[in-house]
Design a protein around this nucleic acid. Structure first.
Lengths: 147, 147
DNA sequence: ATAAATGCAAAGGTTTTGCAATATG
DNA sequence: CATATTGCAAAACCTTTGCATTTAT
């Protein structure tokens, strides 16, 4: 299931379920996202909606999408990091990233090393590599949370 | 193996292997990266080196790290995307991302769904989720490459 | 000698913020 | 009605770029 069209009533229900107020702007933004298979960024969404709702402002799109994400109504495509970070360790290993403090810890896992491109990719293109990482809360942040 | 200290001679060898000129700045930058387990960003590297090499400029750090990465001497931690993109499809699925045009295609894979947190994480913190994605070249870009 | 790398400063691009006005539950 | 959301504009932030100078091969 992908690319769906929803009415305001259904959207209002989704908002209620996530503790959000349902505004016309948010409806348009959410509609644009669920009606697309493009995984759009803020600008695409903004440009598309502007045609039918010229009063919409850019930061409303940004804010709405962040809010939807925080409340779990939509998800961010590839998590990424706040800034570019590098690793000079070139042997096969993986990363555990703390979502609270941003600490990145290396770990080694045979299991993860064995993950290979699924055949479902064949019809989409040529795979170059599979990226796997674990996100969570590091021990330090876990402790400080108890404080 | 992690957190190593290297001398200029060894560094020069690494550069030669990757077709790079070995400068004092690059040596400091590379040393900082390989001598750290922090997966630092440009600013950390810059700040650390500035103490001993006050003439170093910020953009040299950026440029050097990008160059190291392009030549395969170091790697970027979590690939991420150029801008934040969202997905309203909340059922379990994964993404194939084309490194050329940026197109993101959904795919469904039982195999990927089954990937679970490796036990190696236990000593690092509490895992929230595993993120997996496939990077490569989409069919469209593959074709246009032949032209 | 030639081509590449550096430093400087300025620009580029995306994302965020403060505030007054407005709309929602 | 109280509170959250919007629009506007400006700022913040990370990263990149052009150019003259210096450096490595």
């Amino acid at each position: 299931m992908h690319k769906r069209k929803i009415g305001f009533a259904e959207f209002a229900g989704i908002c209620r379920n996530h503790g959000l107020k349902s505004t016309q702007q948010r409806f348009e933004i959410y509609s644009e996202l669920i009606g697309s298979t493009e995984h759009p960024d803020a600008e695409s969404v903004y440009t598309a909606i502007r045609k039918r709702m010229p009063s919409l402002s850019f930061d409303t799109v940004y804010r709405a999408m962040r809010t939807f994400e925080e409340k779990g109504a939509i998800s961010r495509v590839s998590p990424g990091l706040e800034r570019t970070r590098y690793d000079a360790n070139m042997e096969p290993h993986h990363h555990f990233i703390c979502g609270k403090c941003g600490t990145i810890k290396d770990f080694y896992s045979e299991e993860f090393n064995r993950i290979s491109t699924p055949m479902e990719i064949d019809e989409l293109g040529k795979a170059e590599y599979v990226h796997v990482e674990v996100r969570g809360l590091c021990n330090k942040c876990r402790k400080s949370k108890l404080t």
